[in-house]
């Protein structure tokens, strides 16, 4: 079956401050092909072009060269319905707490669905659904003030605001930075459910390799604005050397196995799940 990818990026280039002495190639020919319902991680060192790339997905940036096609919409075409695109693609920024502006939590989350012109009952249902999804109790939290929240809670509110739009593609830039381990695990769990049960396509940028190993069906690794490697976590983490050269770490599990391998032990270096990695060691003893 030849399925139409929900997002296709071909040879995308972007130059900041083009034509000035400060000209900088943020993207120098990146390609991605993502099918509906996939969970994709984009990783790379600071400055590798990850953030520039994901800002293209909902049309915040338009391709200077190359193609970006989202569910049949060609972003190079200036006449596309940008509102429709933004409804399809929900983008959560790196410091989502900055995107909170209402005084009351419930109002902030309702803003998007309300602007979509949904009936009030539907808006309420969506707010409730989104809040429960990120782990905020609707009854308890909807009338609380947004400014008296901790950093982690603000993050959840901002994420709920985007989820309430029920996008087809959810794009997240560092979704768990600054969350405590349990909030992080719960959020990842919920995103995974959303991905598997509701078939929402998820694209996320992360520095946390444990998180990438847990979540991603496939990984795209960027370096200097180009594709470095891509594939399943097994395929990518086996390239530990190459990743390290570009200042990208691997999960601790892979790290430990790599050290063992360097000492001459016969281990599979890409057994990145904790259970598997522990089994590799048990098999040695």
């Amino acid at each position: 079956m030849t399925e139409q990818p929900i997002l296709e990026v071909k040879h995308l280039q972007h130059i900041y401050m083009k034509g000035t002495p400060l000209e900088h190639h943020a993207l120098a020919g990146v390609s991605l092909k993502i099918n509906k319902g996939e969970c994709i991680a984009v990783i790379g060192h600071t400055g590798s072009g990850k953030s520039t790339l994901i800002q293209h997905v909902n049309g915040l940036m338009r391709p200077q060269a190359g193609d970006v096609v989202v569910d049949g919409m060609d972003l190079a075409d200036p006449k596309i319905d940008i509102r429709l695109l933004r409804r399809k693609v929900g983008l959560v920024f790196q410091n989502p707490e900055d995107q909170i502006f209402e005084k009351i939590i419930g109002d902030d989350i309702a803003y998007g669905p309300f602007k979509m012109g949904l009936p009030i009952k539907e808006v309420r249902d969506r707010v409730k659904w989104a809040m429960e999804l990120v782990g905020l109790s609707f009854e308890e939290m909807k009338d609380r003030a947004t400014y008296a929240l901790s950093g982690g809670q603000k993050r959840k509110v901002a994420l709920a605001g985007v989820l309430a739009l029920r996008p087809d593609i959810l794009v997240l830039d560092e979704p768990t930075a600054g969350l405590d381990p349990r909030s992080r695990n719960e959020l990842l769990e919920r995103l995974k459910t959303l991905n598997k049960k509701e078939n929402m396509t998820i694209i996320f940028v992360s520095h946390n390799m444990e998180e990438v190993a847990y979540m991603a069906d496939r990984i795209y690794v960027l370096a200097d604005g180009r594709n470095l490697v891509d594939g399943t976590p097994e395929e990518v983490f086996v390239e530990a050397e190459k990743l390290r050269e570009h200042y990208i770490g691997t999960p601790d599990t892979v790290e430990i196995l790599a050290q063992l391998k360097a000492k001459g032990f016969a281990v599979r270096q890409n057994a990145y799940q904790l259970e598997e990695a522990a089994n590799e060691i048990i098999a040695l003893l």
């Binding site: 060192h45 520095h207 946390n208 200042y247």
Partner: peptide, 9 residues
């Protein structure tokens, strides 16, 4: 907490 693995190290 806002840094990548390399930055954190």
């Amino acid at each position: 907490s806002m840094l990548d693995t390399h930055g954190r190290n």
